[in-house]
């Protein structure tokens, strides 16, 4: 027991290092410009001010970036859900010709390094006339096959009793109708996991939104906005800290609410 307590001596400083940047960020965001400039070490600001937030929100356009990020993330999640659920349904149930080949191909692409295929994707979206738009960035993010969600949906749908489908057909439901009003509502747990993880990934995305908004500064997402704010106003630490707080608080809040699903989802990835 005593030896166990000694470990706290290691864990407490470690955790401090891990969360202090967030504490620093929030505290600096509330400090006055003068206090930030003087570089005091205290956690609590001498005088609390909202100036930094006002500056970040209006002058540095973080208000617009926030709504861009929400639009970008929500649309991405919806497309990923729709595509991977339908794909998972088609692959998980019924006898689609060439099913094994498709699944094999999907799994193979998991192991081939990608992320370096951005140039063809960029040219493709550009060719569709969607460059310099949020929709282009959404397509580039949601378009590439999301193998893990597809496999999750596939496994889930494959495990459903055949009677459900038969009953729906006898009642006269068409194939799409069966899917949307019977099967999809039953897949809520998978929908939740997939939505959560893709929302987080989209919110934190940087590379694709950066590339697709190079010509349209007004469409930047929070991460990209933060990057360009740092590029132009590297000395406005208070404003930067406020911008960072605006960017991170929503995702941290979501995480704290849905912690369990997060941790279980990640742990599940290793076990299976």
């Amino acid at each position: 027991m005593r030896r166990l307590n000694l470990w706290h001596l290691l864990l407490v400083p470690l955790c401090l290092v891990w969360i202090y940047p967030f504490v620093w960020m929030v505290s600096t965001a509330f400090k006055s410009e003068r206090e930030v400039f003087l570089g005091g070490l205290s956690v609590l600001p001498d005088e609390w001010t909202f100036d930094n937030f006002v500056r970040a929100w209006d002058t540095a356009h973080f208000g617009a970036y926030l709504s861009n990020t929400i639009v970008f993330s929500v649309t991405t999640v919806l497309i990923v859900l729709l595509v991977s659920a339908t794909a998972g349904y088609a692959l998980g149930r019924g006898s689609l010709p060439g099913k094994k080949v498709i699944v094999g191909l999907l799994i193979a692409t998991m192991f081939i390094p990608h992320g370096y295929t951005i140039i063809p994707i960029f040219k493709l979206v550009d060719g569709l006339g969607l460059n310099n738009g949020l929709l282009g960035a959404v397509l580039a993010t949601a378009g590439p096959a999301h193998v893990v969600p597809i496999l999750l949906f596939m496994g889930y749908f494959a495990g459903m009793p055949q009677e459900l489908e038969d009953a729906a057909r006898i009642d006269g439901a068409s194939y799409p109708r069966t899917f949307f009003s019977i099967m999809l509502p039953l897949a809520k747990p998978v929908i939740g996991t997939v939505a959560l993880f893709n929302f987080m990934a989209a919110w934190n995305a940087f590379f694709i939104p950066l590339v697709f908004t190079l010509g349209r500064p007004d469409l930047r997402t929070l991460g990209v906005g933060m990057y360009s704010f740092f590029g132009s106003e590297a000395t406005d630490w208070g404003g930067l800290a406020a911008g960072a707080t605006i960017s991170l608080l929503p995702i941290i809040a979501i995480f704290l609410f849905l912690q369990r699903t997060f941790v279980e989802g990640i742990a599940g990835a290793v076990k299976s």
Partner: peptide, 13 residues
């Protein structure tokens, strides 16, 4: 906690 946050923003912080 750091895992769920935006890498680009963290880099600047």
């Amino acid at each position: 906690l750091p895992v769920v946050t935006t890498t680009a923003v963290i880099g600047i912080v």
